[in-house]
């Protein structure tokens, strides 16, 4: 790949990642985080950088189905992993139930923390530890929202959680 990364003379490794269902070969430095890989190299900017230190949750993606802060994951460690970002959950014309619920409940304002909130909520539902509002609040606390949409986010997740109760959960990468 004729990228600045490869040209710089600094060490790189090649790896294969399955990103939103598509296997891709990428070239990374040892220190390239998954977040930087997604946002700069792959131009998948739906995943956000809010702090770059695991302190805000805006960069949350699903790695092999688990919600993870992508800013603290070195891409090079993920060879062979399946990664689902917000772009892989739905599109404006075909939204994931959580995406629809977020719109309906106005569960965001500026929208910057939103992809992380939604990916985190997908993880939360997959984990199956949240039954009610107290659990939603506690288990979504790794996603800060400075616009203060928390109550609406809880409403949106609660709606999807109760709709899915008893029915098989939609796969993250679907």
């Amino acid at each position: 790949m004729d990228t600045p990364r490869a040209q710089s003379g600094l060490p790189t490794s090649s790896l294969i990642l399955d990103i939103n269902g598509i296997a891709q070969t990428v070239e990374v430095h040892p220190w390239t985080t998954l977040l930087d890989l997604l946002r700069s190299e792959l131009e998948l900017t739906g995943t956000k950088k809010g702090c770059d230190h695991g302190q805000c949750g805006a960069c949350t993606v699903l790695i092999d189905g688990e919600r993870i802060n992508s800013c603290l994951k070195l891409a090079v460690t993920l060879d062979g992993a399946e990664i689902t970002t917000i772009e892989g959950l739905g599109t404006p014309g075909d939204m994931h139930p959580l995406q629809r619920a977020f719109v309906e409940h106005d569960a965001f304002q500026c929208g910057y923390c939103t992809p992380g909130q939604i990916c985190s909520a997908v993880g939360l539902i997959n984990e199956g530890h949240a039954q009610g509002r107290d659990e939603i609040r506690e288990l979504m606390s790794g996603n800060l929202c400075r616009c203060g949409a928390y109550t609406n986010i809880a409403d949106a997740i609660e709606e999807v959680l109760s709709a899915q109760a008893g029915t098989p959960q939609r796969e993250a990468a679907e």
């Binding site: 995943t47 917000i86 739905g90 404006p92 995406q99 977020f102 719109v103 965001f108 929208g111 939604i118």
Partner: peptide
């Protein structure tokens, strides 16, 4: 602008 924001397209 909601659908763009929740799908990471904004």
């Amino acid at each position: 602008d909601g659908p763009l924001k929740v799908t990471g397209q904004a």
